[in-house]
């Protein structure tokens, strides 16, 4: 069993509009874990991430950093790339280092490494509007990893991408995680992606937002295409799909 890094106990989040985004959510994130959150739109996935990031506070319940140092070493990849439109790719990726007071000379090498890692070499001087959606997302990922975070929160980073690009970036993220042993919390709609990448998947239900099931994916890394084709992959997928369906239970779409 992994050492717990972050625990949420009986967390409820009610927005001022009266929406109950999360109800009685308890979740433990292990140190070095790749945890995926899947669930229908509006079930509170983004809300969980913003609670963990400290961008909003729980209405009830506790959020506890079991490894307090990690709290300062957090990076967030937002649902849209959230790049500064007036800065070049390179300056966007340098931003967290600049804000932390690291000089250009010192940050240059780190920034170049991050750019190379996400495959944006040659586009350092391009502005975000000159990039494709996938490239923008990669710039956003580079900005997150340039600080060498301990905890990486990713909110549907590949939601808007085509399958080929998505697979490629999945591969990259998995390798990075495998190398660096970060703790990753990854939000997605995509069951394939969740099974392929994660050590564990938490399935969420809607109305109110809650966790309906958790599934451990016991498959060694690095994972390959063979895993995707295996019968076991199909079983995991099936279990997730069933859990998702129960989570949708109370909602009928006419």
């Amino acid at each position: 069993m992994l050492q717990p890094a972050i625990t949420l106990s009986h967390v409820t989040k009610v927005f001022s509009t009266g929406t109950i985004a999360l109800q009685d959510v308890s979740l433990t994130v292990g140190d070095g874990e790749f945890l995926s959150l899947v669930g229908p739109s509006g079930c509170g996935k983004s809300t969980i991430l913003s609670l963990i990031a400290g961008l909003s506070l729980p209405t009830q319940g506790d959020l506890c950093w079991q490894i307090p140092e990690y709290r300062q070493e957090l990076a967030f990849v937002f649902q849209d790339a959230a790049l500064l439109p007036w800065s070049t790719v390179k300056e966007n990726i340098r931003l967290p280092l600049k804000l932390a007071g690291i000089s250009r000379a010192e940050s240059d090498q780190l920034v170049d490494e991050a750019i190379e890692l996400v495959g944006l070499t040659g586009f350092e001087k391009a502005f975000p509007r000159q990039l494709s959606g996938g490239m923008r997302m990669r710039a956003s990922i580079a900005r997150a990893i340039v600080t060498q975070p301990k905890v990486l929160l990713m909110d549907e980073p590949f939601g808007a991408l085509d399958e080929i690009t998505r697979n490629k970036l999945n591969e990259d993220v998995m390798q990075l995680w495998h190398q660096k042993r970060w703790t990753v919390i990854f939000v997605t709609h995509n069951i394939y992606e969740a099974v392929y990448l994660s050590t564990r998947v938490a399935v969420m239900g809607v109305n109110p937002g809650r966790i309906v099931d958790e599934l451990q994916i016991d498959e060694p890394y690095p994972r390959s295409e063979a895993f995707r084709q295996s019968a076991q992959f199909g079983q995991y997928r099936h279990r997730l799909a069933t859990a998702l369906a129960t989570g949708m239970g109370s909602v009928s779409i006419l």
Partner: peptide
């Protein structure tokens, strides 16, 4: 200011 960018800057303890 874009809300996501605002959150980003909050996250960086600016």
């Amino acid at each position: 200011v874009d809300r996501n960018l605002n959150n980003l800057f909050k996250l960086y303890n600016t």
